[in-house]
Amino acid sequence: NKFNKEQQWATYEILNLPNLNEEQRKAFIDSLKDDPSQSANLLAEAKKLNDAQA
């Protein structure tokens, strides 16, 4: 299913963002699990935070 693929991709991407700390990473991944339909939005937020902390 589409959300499952998006969720897996977003999880992979978030795990590989270098500037997030473990707590932030875990929070994003927990949110992905809670609502896979928000995968794209959550990934965008994670990338923004990652860039802000660069």
Rank of each mutant, 00 (worst) to 15 (best):
N1G: 07
N1A: 02
N1F: 01
N1D: 15
N1P: 15
N1H: 10
N1T: 04
N1L: 04
N1I: 04
K2I: 14
K2S: 14
K2T: 08
K2H: 15
K2P: 14
K2W: 13
F3E: 15
F3Q: 15
F3R: 08
F3S: 13
F3G: 15
F3T: 14
F3K: 14
F3M: 14
F3I: 15
F3W: 05
N4Y: 13
N4G: 14
N4K: 03
N4Q: 11
N4D: 15
N4W: 15
N4A: 08
N4S: 07
K5S: 12
K5G: 08
K5Y: 05
K5F: 03
K5M: 04
K5W: 05
K5E: 15
K5L: 03
K5H: 07
E6Q: 05
E6G: 04
E6K: 03
E6H: 06
E6D: 10
E6I: 11
E6Y: 13
E6M: 08
E6V: 06
E6L: 12
Q7T: 07
Q7W: 15
Q7V: 15
Q7K: 03
Q7G: 05
Q7S: 06
Q7I: 07
Q7A: 15
Q7F: 14
Q7M: 14
Q7D: 06
Q8T: 08
Q8N: 03
Q8D: 04
Q8W: 09
Q8P: 02
Q8L: 13
Q8I: 12
W9L: 13
W9D: 06
W9Y: 12
W9E: 13
W9I: 13
W9H: 14
W9Q: 12
W9N: 05
W9K: 06
W9S: 05
A10L: 04
A10K: 02
A10P: 01
A10T: 05
A10Q: 02
A10H: 06
A10F: 10
A10W: 05
A10V: 11
T11L: 15
T11Y: 15
T11P: 02
T11N: 05
T11W: 15
T11A: 15
T11F: 15
T11M: 15
T11S: 09
T11R: 08
T11I: 13
Y12P: 01
Y12L: 06
Y12Q: 08
Y12N: 06
Y12E: 07
Y12T: 05
Y12S: 08
Y12K: 05
Y12H: 06
E13S: 10
E13G: 07
E13D: 04
E13Q: 14
E13I: 15
E13A: 13
E13H: 14
E13R: 10
E13T: 13
E13F: 13
I14E: 01
I14F: 03
I14D: 01
I14Q: 01
I14P: 00
I14R: 00
I14Y: 01
L15K: 07
L15S: 11
L15N: 12
L15W: 12
L15I: 07
L15E: 11
L15D: 05
L15G: 05
L15P: 01
L15Q: 11
L15A: 10
L15R: 07
L15T: 09
N16P: 01
N16K: 12
N16Q: 06
N16S: 09
N16L: 10
N16G: 08
N16F: 03
N16E: 05
N16W: 06
L17K: 00
L17R: 00
L17Q: 02
L17D: 00
L17T: 00
L17V: 00
L17H: 02
P18M: 08
P18F: 07
P18I: 05
P18S: 06
P18H: 06
P18N: 05
N19D: 06
N19P: 00
N19R: 04
N19I: 01
N19T: 03
N19W: 13
N19F: 11
L20D: 00
L20P: 00
L20F: 01
L20G: 00
L20E: 00
L20W: 00
L20V: 02
N21K: 08
N21V: 05
N21P: 03
N21E: 07
N21A: 09
N21L: 11
N21Y: 12
N21H: 10
N21G: 07
N21D: 09
E22T: 10
E22P: 12
E22L: 12
E22Y: 13
E22S: 10
E22Q: 13
E22G: 09
E22R: 08
E22M: 11
E23D: 12
E23N: 12
E23P: 06
E23I: 14
E23A: 13
E23F: 14
E23H: 10
Q24R: 02
Q24D: 04
Q24I: 03
Q24N: 02
Q24S: 03
Q24W: 02
Q24M: 04
Q24V: 04
Q24F: 02
Q24A: 03
R25N: 01
R25D: 00
R25L: 04
R25V: 06
R25T: 05
R25Y: 03
R25W: 02
R25K: 13
R25M: 05
R25F: 03
R25H: 03
K26F: 10
K26L: 11
K26I: 07
K26V: 06
K26W: 12
K26N: 08
K26G: 07
K26Q: 10
A27K: 09
A27M: 13
A27T: 09
A27D: 09
A27R: 14
A27Y: 15
A27L: 14
A27F: 15
F28L: 04
F28I: 04
F28D: 00
F28P: 00
F28N: 00
F28E: 00
F28H: 01
I29P: 00
I29S: 03
I29N: 02
I29E: 02
I29T: 05
I29K: 03
I29M: 10
I29F: 05
I29D: 01
D30Q: 13
D30M: 15
D30K: 13
D30H: 13
D30S: 14
D30T: 13
D30R: 15
D30I: 10
D30G: 11
D30L: 14
D30F: 14
S31E: 07
S31M: 12
S31H: 10
S31F: 11
S31I: 06
S31V: 09
S31W: 11
S31T: 09
S31P: 02
S31R: 14
S31L: 10
S31G: 12
L32N: 01
L32K: 00
L32D: 00
L32T: 02
L32Q: 03
L32V: 10
L32E: 00
K33A: 13
K33F: 15
K33N: 13
K33Y: 14
K33E: 13
K33Q: 07
K33P: 02
K33H: 11
K33S: 12
K33I: 14
D34I: 08
D34S: 13
D34R: 12
D34P: 02
D34Y: 11
D34L: 15
D34Q: 14
D34K: 10
D34V: 12
D34F: 12
D35W: 09
D35F: 13
D35R: 07
D35E: 07
D35N: 12
D35G: 03
D35A: 09
D35S: 10
D35M: 08
D35K: 08
D35Q: 09
D35T: 08
P36V: 04
P36S: 04
P36Q: 02
P36F: 05
P36K: 03
P36R: 02
P36L: 03
P36M: 04
S37H: 06
S37G: 08
S37D: 06
S37R: 07
S37L: 06
S37P: 05
S37T: 09
S37A: 07
S37M: 08
Q38D: 07
Q38Y: 04
Q38V: 05
Q38H: 06
Q38T: 06
Q38F: 05
Q38G: 06
Q38I: 07
S39I: 15
S39T: 08
S39W: 15
S39P: 03
S39Y: 15
S39L: 11
S39K: 03
S39D: 02
A40K: 15
A40M: 15
A40H: 09
A40E: 07
A40R: 14
A40D: 05
A40W: 15
A40F: 14
A40G: 11
A40I: 11
A40P: 05
N41Y: 15
N41K: 14
N41T: 11
N41P: 07
N41E: 09
N41M: 13
N41H: 10
N41D: 09
N41I: 12
L42Y: 11
L42H: 03
L42E: 02
L42K: 06
L42F: 11
L42W: 10
L42S: 03
L42D: 01
L42Q: 04
L42N: 02
L42P: 01
L43K: 02
L43I: 05
L43E: 02
L43G: 01
A44K: 10
A44N: 09
A44E: 11
A44S: 11
A44G: 07
A44Y: 11
A44W: 13
A44H: 07
A44F: 12
A44I: 10
A44L: 14
E45G: 05
E45R: 14
E45T: 11
E45V: 13
E45Q: 13
E45S: 12
E45P: 00
E45H: 07
E45A: 14
A46W: 01
A46T: 00
A46Q: 00
A46M: 01
A46S: 02
A46D: 00
A46Y: 02
A46L: 01
A46N: 00
A46V: 02
A46K: 00
A46I: 01
K47Y: 14
K47T: 06
K47F: 11
K47A: 05
K47S: 05
K47D: 02
K47M: 11
K47Q: 05
K47N: 07
K47R: 06
K48V: 08
K48R: 12
K48I: 11
K48N: 07
K48W: 08
K48S: 08
K48E: 07
K48H: 07
K48M: 12
K48F: 07
K48Q: 09
L49W: 06
L49K: 04
L49Y: 05
L49F: 05
L49S: 02
L49N: 02
L49I: 09
L49T: 06
N50L: 01
N50S: 10
N50V: 01
N50T: 01
N50K: 01
N50M: 01
N50D: 06
N50F: 01
D51G: 08
D51Y: 11
D51E: 12
D51T: 10
D51S: 12
D51R: 10
D51P: 01
A52K: 11
A52V: 12
A52T: 08
A52N: 09
A52Y: 09
A52W: 12
A52Q: 11
A52S: 08
A52H: 10
A52G: 06
Q53M: 11
Q53A: 06
Q53H: 05
Q53K: 04
Q53R: 04
Q53Y: 08
Q53F: 10
A54R: 04
A54G: 12
A54L: 09
A54W: 11
A54Y: 11
A54P: 07
A54I: 08
A54N: 10
